[in-house]
Amino acid sequence: MLQGIAFYLLAAVAVVGGLMVVTAKNPVHSVLWLILTFFSSAGLFVLLGAEFLAMLLVVVYVGAVAVLFLFVVMMLDVDFVRLREGYARYLPLAAIVAGVLLAEMIMISLVVVNGGAASDAVAPATAVDMTNAEAIGRVLYTDYVYIFQAAGIVLLIAMIGAIVLTLRHKPNIKRQKAHDQVNRDRKTAVEVKGAATGEGVTAEDLI
């Protein structure tokens, strides 16, 4: 009974959250609703007994990806009135995209119900007492280790690409050099200039 209550609560929150992502007027509110949707989906994963995936969903998507999302959206300088104006113009295109997506979703669910393309594939063998973190680890790091590593390399390349595209070393800029700054000593940092008593110094003498 408790499971049923939890399921309907989480599912309802996820659906309402998803709806609000699209309909909210303020983009920041949209992102916050999106976060709520992620969170409820994580709850649904827990109910399915996939607690490892649920926690990863929260750590990766809610804790990192959505934070960056929010970060960017908050700094956008959006004129909401102008945003409304484009609404009618993009509506047909949006409707087509949404229609295609809906059709695909329905197809996928039908295929899943009928067993689908993977129906003749052998399910990975898992022991009964294995925790699902262990089961996922076994599948990822033994059965599919090459594909998994390849995915990692693709991500690494994407990261390096982003750095290459954005990193500019401007000349004539003072940079922090922690090592040099910490290792400065009296010998290199201080120079004692002699000044005769009673004659005073001018700025030129000190250079």
Partner: peptide, 22 residues
């Protein structure tokens, strides 16, 4: 007594940033 207790804690503490950012 979760069997992914550490991950749960890690997940929740990664959410802590939202209070501040919001």
């Amino acid at each position: 007594d979760l069997n992914v207790g550490i991950l749960y804690i890690f997940a929740i503490s990664s959410l802590g940033v939202y209070g501040i950012i919001m």
